[in-house]
Design a protein around this nucleic acid. Structure first.
Length: 323
DNA sequence: ATGGTTTTTACTGCGTC
DNA sequence: GACGCGGTAAAAACCAT
């Protein structure tokens, strides 16, 4: 194949520039042989030594003139214009499908096989590129949402690791980048012990809750991610500070949750509700005034749930540590 | 799809400020 | 009378099957 063409062009250009410029002489600067122009490959090549005198002579303009429609079709240059919309400006390399060599001769079967392998690999690298772009966008999203939620750096990193894995495992097709990115962040936040509820996440995400939960479940399952049920305690500090309550109350809330855990009252219940209830109950016990309504606001949970939970919490703490 | 469980919505009655 | 609180029933959401 093209092995026969020695590509000394870049080196030679420097020294032979003047000669190349008045290259109309049709003399090879290297060996003085005859130079032919290979229009099919847009190259000017020396017939003798194979030196490429000029290459990539691209003319993007239309043909000089066209007198009617059919001529216009013939003469206009086709192909997509270069564009910045694509990462490679639409100029990525494809390996031709014709099994012909540079001179148009048919390839041997051995060579054909080789080309087939090359096509395969080339395709792989191209799709890898597309994944890179995909990744960039997703990471941007993750960053945006994470800072909107005040999540620390390490969570973003975990999220991007999860996203990368999802990408590697080909989990993306059929799902939106947004969705998977959001799901990754949600999972990362939980794993890092700084959970955010589905509501909070979907508030800053561009995907709705339904899609989020769907893709989240999917990602977790496919990746075999280990995400334990969120620990209610992790929500406590946020609620406490959101309500301007004391450290004392916070400590109390944790105790209540601990008692509840021992009594096994907490299983199956929403962790957020439990946390909210423990904060409310703790505030009651420490005589700090907070209404159920206020707690339900910062926790995004209904008052009813708070009521139900906090009763259970108090019962549990009674039996766990009989006063 | 279905059924069991949890959460939410909506409404009511009671006590207090 | 407004507000906080507690309770209940029915609807909705969620989850495993």
């Amino acid at each position: 194949m093209t092995d026969t063409i020695t590509r000394t062009y870049t080196e030679e250009t420097e020294t032979n520039e003047t000669e190349a410029q008045r290259g109309e002489t049709e003399q090879c600067p290297e060996c003085g042989g005859r130079v032919i122009s290979d229009t099919e490959h847009a190259e000017t090549v020396c017939e003798e030594c194979g030196l490429v005198v000029e290459e990539d002579e691209i003319d993007r303009g239309p043909e000089w003139r066209a007198f009617d429609a059919s001529e216009k079709d013939e003469k206009s240059r086709v192909g997509a214009p270069t564009t910045k919309m694509m990462h490679d400006q639409g100029l990525s390399t494809n390996i031709g499908w014709q099994d012909k060599d540079a001179y148009g001769r048919a390839l041997s079967s051995r060579q054909r096989q080789k080309m087939q392998r090359l096509r395969t690999w080339n395709e792989r690298f191209r799709t890898r590129d597309s994944k890179e772009r995909n990744l960039k966008q997703a990471l941007g999203e993750i960053d945006r949402m994470a800072s909107a939620l005040g999540l620390p750096e390490n969570v973003r990193e975990t999220a991007s690791v999860i996203y990368r894995r999802a990408l590697e495992e080909d989990l993306l097709p059929g799902r939106s980048i947004e969705g998977v990115a959001t799901a990754s962040l949600y999972a990362a936040a939980r794993q890092a012990g700084t959970p955010r509820s589905l509501d909070e996440i979907s508030a800053v995400s561009r995907v709705d809750r339904m899609e989020l939960t769907r893709t989240y479940r999917y990602v977790v399952r496919e990746l075999g991610l280990e995400v334990k049920p969120a620990d209610p305690e992790h929500y406590v500090p946020r609620f406490i500070s959101g309500l301007d309550l004391s450290d004392e109350t916070e400590r109390m809330a944790r105790e209540l949750l601990e008692a509840a855990r021992q009594e096994g009252v907490h299983s199956g219940k929403s962790p957020v509700g439990l946390a909210a209830a423990s904060v409310y109950a703790a505030a009651l016990l420490t005589n700090e005034k907070v209404t159920q309504n206020e707690v339900s606001e910062v926790a995004n949970i209904s008052e009813v749930t708070i009521r139900n939970r906090y009763k259970e919490l108090l019962e549990a703490s009674d039996t766990a540590t009989p006063a």
